[in-house]
Amino acid sequence: MTNAAFNVLRILDRTGEKLSGEKISKELGISRSAVWKHIQELRDLGYEIEASQKEGYHVAQRTKRLLPYEIKRHLKTKKIGSDLHYAISTPSTIWLGKQMMREIENDVGEGLVIIAEEQTGGIGRLGRSWASPAGGVWTTIVLKPSIPIARAYMIMMAASVAVARAIRKEYDIGALIKWPNDIFIGDKKVAGMHLELSAEADIIHYCLLSVGIDVNVSVSDLMPTLNREVTSISEELGYDVDRAKFLARVLTEFERRYALVERNEYDALIREWKSLSCTLEHRVEIRTLKKTFEGEAIDLDEHGALIIRKDNGKIERVIAGDCYLL
């Protein structure tokens, strides 16, 4: 897609009025036939652009694609999302991120956001597959934090809080965080996160933070084993939402919390995470690679481990595992 086509779109968006091809061509210094060509390019991307010989062009309806141009219309960040990479389809955005870091790491700045309309091999926590059809938000953020490796989990906490807050603020839906990094609406999952590091000794070279959110996804189209366990924002609301505006909100909310991580203001982030938790103060079942047990989730320690009071009264610290609400 050429930048010239989006230059035409910027002019139409800026004026908000019908503009003739002649006026657009004069402002851009291109021919009227070139303007028409770019209008066709925009239509191919899903924009509904009406044309009249007397009055000219105007945008009747915006694209439903998650295009960088549309995201930036709403984005209010300084670093996160300063560069956006868009793909129609990819095995996964984190796969694409790894490929980019292998090939052009020095040219990839912190805050790059990789976006895909769909993932054919989405990856969730512990390497599990994650259904990623068109209509969701599938993205990976490149980060280069100057923090100890032991504090890397705070990035996941920042992302969890950001997604929950974005859903709450945009749609007034009571999204909550289930330890360690899932976002739930009621008893169903709507989003998940995954973090991979490139590090040496105690120095983090970069992190790839992947966030997957079921936004305008029809749950009935998912596998039967999934549609009983997950939901989507559109399913909860009864209508599709503006994904570009929503992703911009997520990135904005994340940048605010990521700034706390960079400033080592961990306590403030942990407090907010706890206030949005649907795990703490609830009875849970924990499944780790070695054992399964039940108890009450009573706290989160300074390293992100879940503290469980088991039925026999003993305290168990869980660093990694699956948590099920009972």
Rank of each mutant, 00 (worst) to 15 (best):
V230Q: 07
A4S: 15
E22Q: 10
E70S: 06
T231G: 12
F6C: 12
V113A: 14
A5C: 11
V59H: 02
I141H: 01
D311K: 10
I149Y: 02
R102P: 04
L260P: 13
D267L: 13
A116N: 10
I88P: 07
A166R: 03
L209G: 14
V284S: 12
N181L: 08
D172T: 03
A162I: 03
G135H: 06
E294D: 15
G321C: 08
G111R: 04
Q61K: 13
F184T: 12
I141V: 02
Y324H: 10
L226C: 07
T93F: 00
F254M: 12
G16A: 12
R102T: 07
L75V: 05
R32H: 02
L176H: 03
E55A: 15
V217A: 14
A134Y: 03
N106I: 06
G186S: 15
L66H: 02
R168N: 07
S218H: 03
L96N: 03
S33Y: 01
M101E: 06
G124T: 07
I104F: 05
K245C: 11
C207R: 08
S132V: 01
G81P: 03
Y239G: 08
E316Q: 15
K290C: 10
I49Q: 08
I319N: 10
T2V: 09
K245F: 04
S52N: 14
E105V: 08
V113G: 14
S52T: 09
R165D: 12
R256T: 12
H282W: 07
I203A: 11
A320E: 14
I114F: 01
A158S: 07
K76W: 00
I270K: 08
K79M: 11
H205P: 09
P145D: 14
D299P: 11
V8Q: 12
K76R: 04
T90S: 06
H205Q: 15
T139R: 00
D322W: 02
G122I: 02
K169D: 15
A152K: 00
G21H: 07
Q40A: 13
D214E: 15
W95A: 07
S89Y: 02
N3Q: 10
I319D: 13
K290G: 11
I94D: 00
Q119P: 00
A150R: 04
I183R: 07
G295R: 04
P180M: 13
G111V: 08
A34H: 11
G127P: 04
T231Y: 05
R65N: 15
V241S: 13
T120F: 00
G212N: 05
D107M: 13
D202G: 14
K76D: 06
S52Y: 07
E235P: 08
Y239I: 11
V215F: 02
K290Q: 13
N216S: 06
I155E: 02
L195C: 14
R65K: 13
